[in-house]
């Protein structure tokens, strides 16, 4: 019944493809050197993306999770949001904090925005404290408490296991020594810290090598797009 929206028509799609392809080439031109085409794409990107995040935040959070909680009956009739029966007035709190944050735009009241910042910092400190303690401190210690020797039948595997386990334990301990700040890295302590750096370097090398795959995939995606575009011309 409904007409195809104008922007979904084949002509509009072709224009879209062309805009996308030209913008892609404009960004790639930066690899040669800075130039007006890149500058244009860069400035467009900044404007478009700032507005994009604002819009998404507005429709996915502000309307359903704030306005619809405060004014359920009114919001429910205009926008496609599921609303509760009664207004939940404690949502005034984030609204007030949000507005306080915006006082930053008027220099006379800007100090009020610190209240909102204080809330954010407190939230960050409180959640990070427990989560990092749990997942990155306690559990990592737990996982490193491994027996060096595990009885297995095959001698080769047993030796390999012992070696690997030793590398893990010594690696973790030495690298932790590298991060020790309040004691000079001298003597045997310094040597252990040195081993720690080697372990860190091996980890960095491995991560770097692993990442190349990810980066090439991205370029593959872009290049296939450009190939599709070139094919569409002919």
């Amino acid at each position: 019944m409904e007409d195809t929206p104008i922007l979904a028509s084949p002509l509009a799609q072709t224009i879209s493809l062309w805009i996308a392809a030209l913008l892609t080439l404009m960004i790639f031109s930066f690899l040669y050197k800075d130039n007006p085409a890149y500058k244009f794409a860069e400035h467009l990107f900044v404007g478009v993306s700032a507005a994009y995040w604002m819009t998404v935040g507005f429709w996915t959070t502000l309307i359903p999770n704030l306005m619809a909680k405060l004014f359920p009956s009114r919001m429910g009739t205009i926008f496609p949001v599921a609303v509760g029966n009664r207004a939940e007035y404690f949502y005034i709190v984030p609204l007030v904090f949000g507005i306080l944050l915006l006082t930053r735009l008027y220099s006379r009241l800007a100090w009020l925005s610190r209240w909102a910042m204080a809330f954010i910092i407190g939230f960050a400190a409180g959640t990070n404290f427990t989560r990092y303690l749990q997942s990155d401190f306690v559990t990592q210690i737990h996982s490193t408490m491994i027996p060096l020797y595990e009885p297995t039948g095959n001698i080769m595997t047993a030796v390999g296991r012992i070696f690997s386990n030793l590398v893990v334990v010594i690696g973790v301990v030495c690298a932790l020594i590298y991060f020790y700040f309040s004691k000079p890295h001298e003597g045997s302590f310094g040597k252990a810290a040195r081993v720690g750096i080697w372990v860190l370097m091996a980890a960095f090398g491995a991560s770097f090598g692993y990442t190349v795959m990810a980066r090439v995939s991205l370029l593959t995606g872009r290049m296939s797009f450009l190939i599709t575009w070139v094919q569409s011309i002919f």
């Binding site: 930066f30 794409a41 860069e42 990107f45 900044v46 478009v48 700032a50």
Partner: peptide, 13 residues
């Protein structure tokens, strides 16, 4: 901008 790569594009500039 909040957008990661929009930000990078501008900082590169």
């Amino acid at each position: 901008t909040d957008e990661q790569f929009g930000y990078v594009a501008a900082v590169d500039g």
